[in-house]
């Protein structure tokens, strides 16, 4: 099912990870080992974003930050995007991050 994300313009890799960070499945232009690293990073980063969102809520006394639905880290040419337990690597010159996040959100519910 998540493989269909590769059809979206600019998406080079998509992975699903377990709640312990292990790779469940992954597709795209990385090796299995590299996808394992991506899954671990995405899992750790998800927890860090959660921790930072908790603090933002705590300090601002506003509830809208938590629980965070996902995150995007955007570099000059590449971005990592994640929603739920899915993460993908996209070429920002080719991709619409809006479309990628919409697809990720939809697929994360499956």
């Amino acid at each position: 099912m998540i493989k269909r994300l590769l059809i979206v313009d600019g998406v080079n890799v998509v992975c699903k990870f377990r709640d312990d960070g292990a790779l469940v499945e992954g597709y795209g232009v990385l090796t299995e080992a590299e996808m394992g690293h991506l899954a671990k990073f995405a899992h750790d980063y998800k927890r860090i974003v959660q921790g930072n969102a908790d603090q933002l809520s705590m300090f601002t006394q506003l509830r809208g930050w938590t629980p965070p639905a996902g995150w995007v880290v955007r570099g000059q040419s590449t971005a990592a995007c994640s929603v739920g337990n899915l993460v993908c690597v996209v070429d920002v010159r080719l991709a619409s991050l809006t479309e990628v996040m919409r697809e990720l959100t939809e697929l994360s519910h499956w």
């Binding site: 930072n52 603090q55 933002l56 705590m58 300090f59 601002t60």
Partner: peptide, 13 residues
């Protein structure tokens, strides 16, 4: 940077 955010929030609250 993270600690700076925490210090700012902590001191305000």
């Amino acid at each position: 940077a993270i600690a700076t955010m925490q210090a700012r929030g902590w001191e305000r609250i």
